[in-house]
Simulated scan of single mutants.
Amino acid sequence: MAAPAVIRQALATAVSADLPVILWGAPGTGKTSSVVALGAAAGLPVEVVVGSIREPSDFSGLPVLREGGTWFAPPRWAERLAAGGGGLLLLGELTTAPPAVQAAMLRVVLERTVGDLVLPPEVRIVAAANPPGQAADGWDLTAPLANRLIHLDWTVSADDIAEGFASGFPVPEFDLKDAAGPAETAAARSAVGAFLRVRPELVLAVPDTPERAGRGWPSPRSWDMAARAFAACEHAGAGEAVLAELVLGAVGEGAGFELLSWRRDLDLPDPATLLADPGARLPDRLDRLHALLGAVAAHVRSDGGADSWERAWTVVARVAHTAPDVAASAARSLARSRPEGARLPTTMLELAPVLRAAGLLR
């Protein structure tokens, strides 16, 4: 069980990265008050929407006639978030919401859409739930809704509670960071993609019981959340414990532990260092080559310079001698990001078979 401080930091990192997250914990453990404190720390107004007292129309919109057509009118809480330009939406008591209400929440969590109103991109989503056995008339979380969230187990410390009774409960503190950039996110996605080439059976593994389907499990969507969590943790300098909570919360323990173990064993050279010395030693394993070339392509896109783009082709050419399939994947990525004024390097002549396999030559 992770320490409360680790869970708080994982929650703050997820909110900073715009990753929808759900806090699982027993009643009366301060989930709602902590989320309200997080909103205050982030300077975001908080709207608390409790699932047990809502109808599907509170999320899908109430149909009304408007200008000769039907308008799915959003509820007031959504209008307030839209008018404020952003905020933190807390979906409380999720396991007291029946399946019909959970189904209506799907577009809210994934697309930030309530009825015919699209919420601003600055709206962040946090949910809270008691385990179904501890909730009033509890329901398991439906698999589609569970797969849209990162699942964190909310914990409390007996020492903290005892100290709070003795001297008062302090407002929880949250260390909020800015979001990772596009290059960092692209590099993390490339690394996760390289892992899934090694373990393709983990791309999609729908659980076989409602209980397991109601928590984190592997799908393309949850792998993308795991990649974004990687980027956010790298950018914020979060520790391994925080990263583990977010990755396991996205794709489940089995798949998540495999990804974390694989990542620790990568030991890849820095893309900038490799481009400065294209003759540097390359990894032997295919999965490491995939991860390395993905990181190089992400670095080149971020750099935007013609020199970096041209140097990257030298690395691709070296890989092509031993792993043409890996080189072809990187070639497609580089070809899409050619900077203005970049010359086609002479090494591309050696890559004709690879470029043809990548669909870049006829």
Rank of each mutant, 00 (worst) to 15 (best):
L106M: 06
L90R: 10
L141I: 07
V118D: 15
F174D: 06
A104C: 05
A104T: 04
V101H: 06
H151R: 06
I161D: 10
L91M: 11
V109A: 01
P98C: 10
A179C: 03
D178H: 01
L119E: 11
M105R: 02
L204V: 07
K177R: 15
A128S: 15
R107H: 10
L152K: 07
T185P: 00
P182Y: 02
T185F: 02
A104I: 00
F174L: 09
V126N: 12
A191D: 09
A135K: 04
E122Q: 15
E211H: 00
G193E: 08
S190L: 05
P131K: 13
P121H: 14
E201I: 01
V206L: 01
L176F: 01
E201M: 06
L91N: 09
A183H: 01
M105Q: 03
T142K: 03
R197W: 05
M105K: 02
A128Y: 01
P99D: 05
S167F: 09
Q134V: 11
D178M: 05
L119R: 10
V118H: 15
G138C: 12
D178L: 05
E93T: 10
A103D: 12
R197T: 06
K177E: 13
A129Q: 10
N130W: 09
A187L: 01
R107V: 04
A166C: 07
P182I: 08
G168D: 07
R124K: 13
L176P: 03
D153G: 13
P200V: 08
A187Q: 01
T113K: 15
I125H: 13
L119M: 09
A205W: 00
P170G: 03
R199N: 11
A146K: 09
E163P: 03
A180W: 02
L196I: 01
P98D: 07
T142Q: 13
E163Y: 05
P131M: 14
V108P: 04
A128D: 12
E201H: 03
S157E: 13
A104H: 04
D116G: 05
L110A: 14
F195Q: 05
V114M: 08
L202S: 02
V203F: 02
A128F: 01
D140S: 01
A129F: 11
A186V: 01
S167E: 14
A158C: 05
V114Q: 08
G193C: 04
Q134W: 05
P182Q: 08
N130G: 10
